[in-house]
């Protein structure tokens, strides 16, 4: 219910239809994401073959039965592609959501508590921020070979500080605003003020951070898979690229190598476009027309 309130609250400020319709970046980004989202969600039911079915003859060029041909293991590439996309999106969204929640909670907590708590939490954030996340992920993936979801959570555990910092900075500025002081004077508890005043106010930050984190996670997942640090039995866009590259001397680039690269690029582009236009929308300084 509160979420509906917030969105409703934002809609009134944005005059949603007018703004969103005018912003071609946002329109493009959202269209791409909707298309990919649809593909990831509904694709597995539409594809002609089981992606794990290895009964087809390997390395066939595209045909009526296999639109994108088959790979070295005799699997249908189109089916594999759709399943890979789905896994990549799930990884991205999981890491993005977890990172966002972690960041927002620590940021708000830190800002509201202030004093020593704030100092400790923020120094912790600095330390985490200083750790090169790729290296940590490579090590974790290599040593523990965790499931993709666990890996996504580890990524979130490394990615929260930027969100936390942003949220804290905004919350600190808001904390001194008159309406929050007024609510405090009326006897409003910290919980009440965070829930009713601070959290809704930070809504744009959530969107921006979620989009940015998801983009980063998608890219990270592809990189790790490409490096071969993923369970080879899993389906992932990065893994597909990695496998396809092993056969680069064959004429497979257009039907095997190209499609996962295209989808990955589209996914990253889509989230990037949405992030950029959201930042513009909520930061008046970046907005060209008022």
């Amino acid at each position: 219910m509160p979420i509906i309130c917030w969105i409703h609250g934002w809609a009134m400020h944005l005059d949603a239809g007018r703004h969103i319709g005018k912003d071609s970046w946002l329109v493009t980004g959202i269209s791409i994401l909707l298309f990919l989202g649809f593909l990831a969600a509904a694709g597995p039911f539409l594809v002609p073959h089981d992606p794990y079915d290895i009964s087809f003859s390997p390395l066939r060029p595209p045909s009526a039965d296999h639109w994108l041909g088959t790979n070295d293991g005799g699997m249908d590439i189109l089916s594999e592609l759709v399943f890979s996309l789905r896994n990549t999106v799930i990884f991205g969204v999981t890491a993005g959501t977890a990172g966002l929640v972690l960041g927002v909670v620590t940021g708000l907590f830190s800002a509201w508590a202030g004093g020593w708590t704030d100092q400790v939490v923020m120094r912790l954030a600095d330390i985490v921020l200083a750790i090169p996340s790729v290296m940590v992920l490579i090590l974790v993936a290599a040593f523990f070979q965790p499931s993709p979801v666990v890996l996504a959570l580890v990524l979130a555990g490394l990615a929260w500080p930027t969100t936390a910092r942003g949220v804290r900075a905004q919350a600190l500025a808001l904390k001194n605003s008159l309406h929050i002081k007024a609510a405090q004077r009326m006897g409003g508890s910290g919980r009440y003020i965070i829930a009713r005043h601070l959290m809704p106010e930070l809504f744009p930050l959530y969107l921006i951070n979620f989009a940015a984190k998801t983009r980063m996670a998608v890219f990270m997942e592809a990189s790790l898979a490409f490096l071969g640090l993923f369970d080879p039995g899993e389906k992932s866009l990065g893994l597909m690229i990695s496998y396809a590259l092993q056969y680069y001397y064959l004429d497979i680039w257009s039907n095997w190598l190209m499609p996962p690269i295209m989808l990955l690029s589209l996914l990253i582009m889509g989230t990037t476009f949405v992030t950029i236009s959201l930042e513009k929308m909520f930061d008046p300084r970046l907005r060209k027309t008022v």
């Binding site: 917030w6 605003s177 009326m186 508890s189 009440y192």
Partner: peptide
């Protein structure tokens, strides 16, 4: 009760008139 110098800032721009006036009741 308290009334502030800057009315526009002393209310959340995300609250409706009803929410603003009802806020003290909701807090209590």
């Amino acid at each position: 009760g308290m009334i502030y110098q800057n009315p526009a800032e002393s209310v959340s721009h995300r609250f409706t008139v009803f929410d603003i006036v009802a806020e003290p009741l909701r807090i209590q």
